[in-house]
């Protein structure tokens, strides 16, 4: 009995001692350049925390209305009245281009990957934009791509999106949006 106990103990101790060694790697040779880090860490201090009105160009912020805009009519008849111009507002705040930003919003899923995780989506300022509420103007929506995807258990949940923003303005490229974010991180928004 004693030998069994002592054998178990030695084995456990041996495992504990050798495991840290497994993680150590050989030091680089003297004079050789250090390998680059696998992923440049995001400097948390440089991440701009945004509010949705920051996405509007400065001259338009006075008329900022946080709620959904007035519903457009006659969109299908093809006539471009003032109402449809309002929602096609592609004027962007160019100061945000290429900046690391953090923006909260609701997710409208567009593309899913094999496991049902959402990899491309629109981030919108209020819930219901995909259901029955009038959609926000183009400069109040962000087209987000997230490589590892997010499991969206509830579409009612709000999220913080962190990543590099591109402000493209009106673009002739197919599928371009006024704002885009290549997201690196996503967190649940806790009120």
């Amino acid at each position: 009995m004693r030998s069994l106990h002592s054998r178990c103990l030695t084995l456990t101790l041996a495992l504990l001692c050798t495991s840290p060694l497994a993680f150590a790697s050989a030091p680089p040779a003297i004079g050789a350049p250090l390998p680059p880090p696998l992923q440049a860490p995001v400097d948390e201090a440089k991440v701009l925390e945004l509010e949705w009105q920051d996405l509007l160009p400065e001259e338009e912020r006075k008329e900022y209305n946080a709620g959904p805009p007035v519903a457009t009519h006659d969109y299908l008849s093809g006539e471009s009245g003032l109402a449809s111009q309002q929602v096609m507002n592609f004027n962007v705040n160019n100061k945000l281009d290429q900046k690391q930003v953090k923006l909260p919003g609701f997710i409208v899923p567009l593309e899913l990957d094999d496991n049902g995780k959402v990899t491309e989506f629109f981030l919108v300022p209020y819930f219901g934009a995909c259901i029955h509420v009038p959609p926000p103007p183009a400069n109040q929506m962000v087209y987000v791509t997230l490589k590892e995807g997010v499991q969206l258990d509830s579409m009612y949940a709000a999220f913080w999106i962190v990543g590099k923003m591109t402000a493209r303005g009106k673009s002739t490229r197919l599928g371009a949006a006024a704002y885009g974010i290549a997201a690196t991180r996503l967190e649940e928004y806790k009120y």
Binding site: A71, T72, Y75, L76, S84, V87, M88, L110, F122, A129, C130, H132, P134, P135, P136, A138, M141, Y143, S171, L174, G175, A176, A177, A178
Partner: peptide, 13 residues
Amino acid sequence: KERSTLFVMQQAL
């Protein structure tokens, strides 16, 4: 043509 206009089309329909 512009992905962001899908909401407007959806709502109109």
